[in-house]
Write a protein that binds this DNA or RNA. Sequence first.
DNA 1: CTCCATTGTCTAGCGGTGCTAGGATTCGGG
DNA 2: CCCGAATCCTAGCACCGCTAGACAATGGAG
Lengths: 193, 193
Amino acid sequence: MSVQERKQRERAERERLIVATARELAEQQGWDAVTTRRLAERIEYSQPVLYSHFRGKREIIGAVALDGATEMAAVLRAATAATAAGPRGRVAALARAYLDFAAANPAVYDAMFQLDGGLAFAQESTPEQLKDAFAALLETLGEVAGEGVHPGVFTEVFWAALHGQATLTRAGRLPAELIESRVELLVDRLAVV
Amino acid sequence: MSVQERKQRERAERERLIVATARELAEQQGWDAVTTRRLAERIEYSQPVLYSHFRGKREIIGAVALDGATEMAAVLRAATAATAAGPRGRVAALARAYLDFAAANPAVYDAMFQLDGGLAFAQESTPEQLKDAFAALLETLGEVAGEGVHPGVFTEVFWAALHGQATLTRAGRLPAELIESRVELLVDRLAVV
DNA sequence: CTCCATTGTCTAGCGGTGCTAGGATTCGGG
DNA sequence: CCCGAATCCTAGCACCGCTAGACAATGGAG
């Protein structure tokens, strides 16, 4: 029995290694550089080993996305918890933390929201990590939805606005200089305090 | 002389054919299906012909994006012009037209804002078509920026918010049912009327 | 009208991709 | 100790973007 358990542990460990390596490689050189060959070489196994853990490349991206969601949820909660000021301050802190996370972890952010990781969204079968990341947004944003506005819908709108700024800024579609004034404007207008 | 002119015309015509075919194929089966081989087959020339018009696939995507920008600018201006109601009504019409365009032409929208078409953004060398599409947004949104708010920055924020909704909705990240209430909320909060 | 140079186009191929079939090897249980 | 099962790798498929070099068509000069 113990032997089987050890093997299972080693297998799980190797799976974590794959995901971590994929993330690292994507963050260093972009997702285009994450090929199954390079990834296999980095973990010092042959290509087919990857396919004994994941159905294919898309599932690996999905795994990175789930890791990222967990991390993002923690980052967002930490940011709002650290802010003593009222709702307005918490929302501003949340927005900045979100954009900072996206800027600091572009590959992970892409895995979550830009690439196809084969994940379900906004439905029952959505993985727990994604629901929780959304919940982290909802906790703070629900306070400032305003009367008669569904907190969930408000969170979606605010989130989409942040997402737009995150992606357009990183892709060079929005000038990088005025990031701060854009997030200020967004918080001022959307949040009801 | 006339012979050369005819050849030039035919060449320009073929270039238009390439771009139109790429767009059509992308809209039908997604950008992944737009390979140089398939594209060449559809226009009934061999692959290398594509490279006598464009540096590579990315430039073809860029050409589709420019076409899309021209079209989008026209659509947005038509939508606002057709609305008699005041600034609030024009902004709402603009927002709906934008989201409709993105939903109706997903491949073109991707070429413009999601994929790498090798285009410059938000700088001097930005192609005229892109500047004009942004100008179309600015014309209507500048009216409702509110006092002390730079119209350009306001337009960027509003645009990013729309872009976020467009991409997240299409990728299944946001439920499709509440599109209308999300755009309503966005307009109500962001626009100062 | 003939010849040549230029232009245009195609065939074939390079190195890369995601993914998989099938053989070799290792290893635990009887 | 030996056999069967589990594990892993080599080799290869079909496809990708892109390009070198052979070949054919064509317009201009003599």
